[in-house]
Structures are given as C-alpha cells and as structure tokens.
Design a protein around this nucleic acid. Structure first.
Length: 545
RNA sequence: GCCCUCGUAGCUCAGUUGGAUAGAGCGACCGCCUCCUAAGCGGUAGGCCGCAGGUUCAAUUCCUGCCGAGGGCGCCA
C-alpha cells in the first residue's frame, strides 16, 4: 500500500478509538521544511473546535494513540506548532520508492490510469494558413503538446488537432495579396504585407491557383516548424471540408430547430445572450457568407461526437470568444463543461531588451522558425514552458540564445548528461551492477541521497496535479529542483573509485538509475531531449567572445 | 463602462485542495577543481507577497472594494 494511504488509515483508526468523527478527507502533506518530518497532518487543528478541545491537546492525544499502533513506516511522531502532527518515517520507505521507480522505468514511472482511456481532443495552434507561424504561436504550440503528453501519461487517449481556417475573407485576402504581388500590383490595404508574401509569390508556378497553392505553402511551413519543435498533430481539420460534407449547413439548421437562432437585418444570429453573452452573434452575414463562428460551431459539434473531453488552447485575444462557443454547444444540448478552453496570455518578444511587435499585417514579425533556429528546439520549448500560461511572457531571444550557460534547460540536461557520463565510465572500468534485490540500499544515508529520493517520490504527484490543472510548467519547476538535487549530490558524493566502498557504489549506482528515470519522465513530458553527453567545447566553438 | 489574466527580492518567475521561518534562477559580493564534466557546488546581501477591508484557529493563497499592467468587447479571424 502507498505510504500516504497507510498513514491516513492509521490516523482514521486513532480518531475512531478516541471517539472522534473522521472527516471526509484527511489532509496529509509533505512539510516544506524537512525538520517538520516526512509527512504532516492538520487534523487536530481542523477538529479541535468540534471536539471542544485545544489543537495541541488533541494532537497530543492522537500522537499517544498512534504510538500504540504498529507501523512498518513510522519511526516517531511529534506535535508541533499550533497543533500539527508530524510523522518521521523509517528510511525503508524511501528505499522502497527508489526500487519502484527503477522497476517501473521511465516508460511507467509516474504513469496513471486516471484518464481511464477516455478520449480527449486537444486543439491547439490552429493558426490561419495565411502566413508562417510567429514566435507568439510557439507558446500555445509547446503548451498544447505538453498538455497532450501529460494526458497521455495519465491514461487518456489523446488526439492532437489543428483546425485549419482554409476559407473565408482572410484566406481570400491572402490569395489576392499573393496574386497582386505576382501581377506587380500594389497589395490591397487590408491584405497581407509580410515579407514572406514576396518570397512565397516568387515560388508559385504559373498555372497554380494562389489560394490553393498558398494554403499548401502555409501548411507545409507550419508542419515544418512544428516538427522541428518535436510536435506532431494527429489531424489537420479543414474548414473547407465541412462545406463539402454539408456539416455547416446541417449545424445551421440544427441551431434553427433548437430555436437558438433568428433572422434580423438580413443576417442569421445566435441567441448567445441566453447563455450569458453580452450580445447575440452573427452566424451568417447579410451577404450570405458565414462568419468565423458558424463553421467553428460545426467543427466543435464534430469533436463532441468524437471525444469525451475537448480541450482548446486559445490566445488571450480570443478570450471573448469562449462564451459564444459554449453558448452554441449548450443550445444544442451539450454540457458546456465538455469544452475546456485554456487561454495563454501574450508573449512579448524582445531582442536585447527591446520589444518586437508582432503583427502579420505590417510584416514586422519574428517567425517561429527563426526562434527555433536561433535558440534551438529544446531551449525554445523549455523557455515557453517555464512559467504559467496565466502570466504574460517576456521572451528575449538574445537572452535565451546568447546566455546559453545560464539557461535552465542546460542545467537540467547537464544533470542527465553527468549521470550518463558516469555510467559510461563505469562500463569502461568494468563495473558490474548487482541485481536490484542484492543491492544494500541501507548504504544510502547521506542527506543528498535521501533528498534525491524524496524528490523522485514527488514526481507522480506533480504529474497528477499538472494534468489536473493542465499546467505543464509544474513539471518544469520540478525538473529544475530535481536537477539541483542531483548536482548537489554529484558534488558531495562520489560513486565510482577505490575510495568508495563497493556496496556503496552499488547503492549509489542504483540511485542514479532512479534519478535517470525521473529526469527522463520530466523531459519527455516537456518534449525536450535527454542528451547522453554535453561538452563545453561545443560551446567554445560557437561562442566567440 | 463590461469581461479575462496578472501584481511576490534589482530583473525573470515558482509557491500543492488556506498551514509552521515566503523560495529558485539571473544580476551583485565572497569562497570551492590533483577527484565520475566547474554548463557544477557552498555562502552573503536583497521582501509592508500592490493597497484596504472581510471570512478563518491560521490568508501570498478564499471573498469584496480600490490602484496599477496586459488582452478582449466587429455582419474580422
């Protein structure tokens, strides 16, 4: 049984034997301060009032009751602070954790069946095929992919989907911008003026239609840079395909039948105000053309049939769109909770501390491909996933690319490379690891060693929470702390060498195998690579000074 | 005016369903390589957790108001 469950059960028994009511949830946490034990509970604080006792007295009674119970794990108990009950465990539980991690391997450690094979579609990026992806798209791309990875590890069947707005006004403007440039005419004022228009226009074969060709060109550009970022979509859902299949018209008539739409001023409107929207929204314009909304509703209906859970990653500028989309699916009888929209706040791109404005129209953009080229895929992903999506991000290209040494991604990767490097040497000097069951883990007594196992033990919880909150940056934070634990250990504790007892070498080598598992799981969830080696010379060649 | 997000060390950010002395990186300063990679380790300095109320045994965390920053409020997408 899990240590935590075991302790919770002990507490429950103790409460019962004291004739106290057992709360629905016993709060057991890892104290921030190691001096406060391995686990801590606040039940005494929470129950004191009801029990008409003061928290410290109650905690004391609990402690003496608990001490009379046998436990494989608990070494001693302590009442502390205002009435916390702290548990100090035998080290055996840590050794158990280490063995579990090594046995599970990176494929299975921190994996759960929470998702129970439920289907989830994660829709992200979904940028218009009217130009290359820019640096701002990178955040949603890396976030969405990492969320998908978290869900996969938690037992969901995940599909990564890119919705392609390959028709409509913006698409036509894009095509006419290309055509105008080919014809040597001025690009329409409301058209696209990016430098890529010129480049792409020069590539179009004479007999090709600018719209069809431009769409393909943009999509291949998207795929190329996403692939460079280690992101592969399972499907690219075309808006045009829904015109061909008739699903847009079908959606329109469904809304009509549901009494969710009406005609006014020659346009067809969605009664989104009935579901909390500020105003009703146009579905079909008076000129007969669809707005962006209607095909998107049709698309979401399609997704609702295909999956149990829909997760959309939208930029902050689309936030106002959430209410009307939920209104639409709700008016057709779907629970609005089926659709979860995660909003990523803006990315302010800088070069040398100076802001670079992102605007496709003016042509003043930094393409995502440039970012990847400048800082590399791993650094780009790690940087995008460094902080919560709820905060505006400042991404300084020069900082991330120039200051390679100070970049947190290298700190984490170096931790991994150091271990792999040590293992390579171990192999070279003929070190033979014993079978797991023959390793004497009680050799691991050093503070640095115990801290590492504690951190390793946290990973499954961190993954669970990051999945629940759709917050991959929590993995980043854990990885940085875990890497710090490793570097500290590596500095203080030698693994190989004549001055290290063979049994200690065996135990530490096993510890390192466990640490590799943790690092691999974390890096896999972020989609960054785990290099077997890293050498300073690589840096010296690039840097110039 | 309304809606969303944010406000924590000089800078960039963490902070678990409310818990004990609020953390990390960078920057500054001081130390540590005869040793599995110094892309590392240790230490010092640096905080009215935006402000004011409220709830609670306990608030950086929850609620309300205010101040400040960013985003949105189209028959654009």
């Amino acid at each position: 049984m899990d240590v935590r469950e075991s302790i919770k059960n002990l507490i429950k028994e103790a409460l019962l034997s004291l004739g106290l009511e057992v709360p629905a949830e016993i709060h057991l946490e890892r104290p921030a301060n190691v001096e406060h034990g391995d686990w801590s509970t606040n039940v005494a604080l929470a129950l004191a009032k009801k029990a008409e006792s003061n928290p410290r007295d109650l905690a004391g009674q609990l402690a003496s009751t608990l001490e009379s119970f046998p436990s494989d794990y608990v070494a001693r108990l302590e009442v502390a602070g205002p009435g916390f009950l702290n548990f100090y465990l035998n080290k055996a539980w840590l050794y158990e954790i280490l063995l579990q991690a090594v046995n599970a391997g990176s494929e299975n450690w921190a994996r759960s069946e929470q998702g129970a094979n439920r289907k989830v579609i994660v829709e992200f990026v979904s940028a218009n095929p009217t130009g290359p992806l820019h640096a701002g798209h990178g955040r949603g791309a890396c976030y969405g992919d990492s969320v998908a990875r978290l869900l996969e590890r938690s037992g969901y069947l995940v599909s990564r989907e890119f919705y392609v707005n390959d028709r409509g006004i913006q698409m036509n403007l894009f095509a006419s911008s290309l055509a105008a440039h080919i014809a040597g005419e001025d690009i329409p004022a409301d058209g696209y003026h990016g430098v890529y228009i010129k480049e792409w226009a020069s590539e179009i074969p004479e007999d090709e239609d600018p719209l069809d060709w431009g769409k393909k060109r943009a999509l291949s550009s998207h795929k190329e840079v996403l692939s460079a970022l280690n992101i592969e979509f399972d499907s690219w859902f075309s808006e045009t395909s829904m015109v061909d299949s008739g699903s847009i018209e079908k959606t329109l008539s469904m809304l009509e039948k549901a009494g969710a739409s009406y005609e006014k001023d020659g346009a067809i409107w969605l009664k989104s105000t009935e579901y909390g929207d500020d105003k009703d929204r146009v579905l079909v314009k008076s000129d007969g053309e669809y707005t962006y909304l209607l095909p998107d509703v049709a698309y979401h209906l399609d997704k609702l049939v295909r999956a149990d859970r829909l997760i959309n990653v939208w930029g902050a500028d689309h936030h106002g769109y959430i209410t009307r989309m939920k209104a639409a699916i709700q008016s057709l009888g779907y629970e609005p909770e089926r659709l979860e929209v995660e909003v990523t706040q803006m990315v302010n791109l800088q070069r040398s501390g100076e802001e670079v404005k992102l605007s496709k129209r003016t042509g003043d953009i930094v393409e995502l491909s440039e970012v990847v080229k400048e800082v590399g895929s791993d650094a780009a992903r790690f940087t995008y996933l460094l902080q919560s999506i709820d905060t505006t991000q400042t991404f300084d290209l020069d900082l991330v690319s120039k200051r390679v040494n100070e970049n947190p991604i290298f700190y984490v990767q170096y931790a991994y490379a150091r271990i792999r490097s040590m293992m390579k040497k171990a192999d070279q000097i003929g070190f033979a690891p014993l079978p797991l069951s023959e390793v004497d883990l009680s050799q691991l007594q050093h503070h640095r060693e115990l801290v590492l196992i504690r951190s390793l033990h946290e990973l499954p919880d961190v993954v669970e929470r990051a999945t629940r909150e759709l917050a991959p940056h929590q993995i980043t934070t854990w990885l940085r702390e875990f890497a710090a634990d490793l570097h500290g250990f590596y500095h203080d504790c030698r693994i190989l060498g004549d001055d290290v007892e063979p049994s200690l070498t065996q135990a530490r080598f096993l510890l390192m195998r466990g640490v590799l598992v943790g690092l691999e799981v974390g890096m896999e969830l972020l989609g960054v690579s785990a290099p077997a080696e890293m050498w300073r010379d690589d840096l010296a060649e690039e840097g110039d000074g």
